[in-house]
Design a protein around this nucleic acid. Structure first.
Lengths: 144, 144
DNA sequence: CTGCGTGCAAATGCTTTGCATATGT
DNA sequence: ACATATGCAAAGCATTTGCACGCAG
């Protein structure tokens, strides 16, 4: 349990029972969970906490890069402890610049799962396109 | 303009000024648009219509498979005229069954665009995983 | 002791729905 | 004429925010 205290201290986050409990729950969870689910788990562990506090805590953890928040559609979000996160490269076809983004697959994966019950275990993706800056330049050319 | 009347008739949808206008706007739009944007375009064309009617019309068109509704996160949706829609195969690694889904890339694309300004123009994806039925069987095995 | 964290209630923003009226066929 | 489409206002729902009080450092 002191491990979690340490994590919070390292990130200059004040220790409170709620935050410790949420951190623990997130760390133990392999799968992404939503605020409600985390709220319920807190209750089960006897930690009385308000749902709004759960949201605020998750927001804080995300800002501190302890977890990743991802949008699963319908205005809902899941939260996942950062551990095996990986990135993707967006390669601009015009300027050859590379831009790094968090892997968007957890979202796709969750969407597909909720709609079809299909669980993705493997995927290969290659992204390429046109970056913001090049898009601007392109637009200017078109306007001439 | 009669083209649109025809489309509605074919689908047994009553013709109203609002529906015609929305169908026209959708057909002319290359990019996916949200209800608000469609509502604004109606107004610009002098078609007075309520936002709730726009939503109901979009819901109807989607049910009739004239358009595709896709979730772009934050509880928001975009609508796209069906024309160049393509599908993907989900291949189950356990039973070898194939499941067809609408390409999830428009969503990913819109999400990436809104967050980074990067416009995807090309992607290669290969999905494989475990289908609903096999997941069930697997679970049963684990429980033993 | 002081500022940050919290509970509670109310607000938000997009979308959906109920109901009385208007409109297409 | 009759069912169905529409406008208006109000409800839904996950998430966010304002405010007064409470607790960690």
């Amino acid at each position: 349990m002191d491990r979690f205290r340490g994590v919070l201290k390292e990130n200059n986050i004040k220790c409170t029972k709620g935050r410790l409990s949420i951190l623990k729950i997130l760390e133990e969870n392999k799968e992404a969970a939503n605020a409600e689910r985390i709220y319920e788990k807190c209750s089960k562990e006897g930690v009385k906490i308000d749902l709004s506090t759960v949201y605020r805590t998750l927001e804080l953890f995300e800002k501190m890069s302890l977890i990743e928040k991802f949008d699963i559609g319908e205005g809902k979000y899941n939260y996942l402890f950062k551990e095996h996160n990986h990135k993707h490269i967006l390669h601009c076809k015009l300027c050859d610049k590379n831009l790094e983004i968090d892997c968007p697959m957890p979202q796709v994966s969750d969407i597909i799962k909720s709609k079809t019950g299909f669980v993705l275990v493997e995927e290969e993706i290659k992204f390429s396109g046109i970056c913001k800056d090049c898009a601007k330049i392109n637009k200017r050319k078109e306007e001439k």
